[in-house]
Amino acid sequence: MSNARENILARLRAARAERVPDYIPRWSPAHPEGDELVALAVKHMEATRTLVLRVAPSEIGATVRDLLRQRSVTNLLRAPDTWVGELLDAQWPGDGECELLTWDHAAPDYCRDVLFPEAQASITTVKALVADEGAVVLWPTPSEPRTMSLVPPLHIAAVRVGQILPSLAEAVAAFDWAVNRPNNAVLISGPSRSGDIENTLRIGVHGPMELVVLLVDD
């Protein structure tokens, strides 16, 4: 097996090009600011069938509650130690109509045992929202693991308006991404979709059937 490596590399060393471009032209997508930036982000996210709701921090609880009620969703996974988790917990009515779930770190396999069979919705924070692509950027953490935004049929992404960046290119620079290297990151532009049955677009094949972006004023 280790021979494969040496053989391949030997062939490739012998194959090195005499000239390669030493200059890569930079690509910089549009770079709007302020309201224009927000408008672009909203436009691009809505174009991929994402529901975008702009709310004040004080309205989060009620807004989420309405969203869930309209969809007859009876539980919501959130991380209590994130900014949105804290706001939700503070604003959540104690009527028991919709249960707030917490990822149980002590459980042997919360993902397989609880998340898959039970969780109907989740709300997570994001690292950023990139406007040119129209996607939220997630760097999963121990409190908001990878599958939290993937498995429940409804995913709500809570974005502070100040987290909107013009593009992925700017996010790579802003987070010094090449140095900080998360072990997992994902860009999400909308609900899970497929065109594989007769090539007509259908929503909700493997991932969430619905993506809601809560755009929260700073």
């Binding site: 997992n184 899970s192 991932g207």
Partner: peptide
């Protein structure tokens, strides 16, 4: 403009990771 998901895998789970 971008696919629905763009996955960037930077390694296996780290201590504390839940999945």
């Amino acid at each position: 403009r971008i696919s629905t998901y763009f996955n960037m895998v930077g390694g296996p789970r780290r201590p504390g990771d839940q999945d």
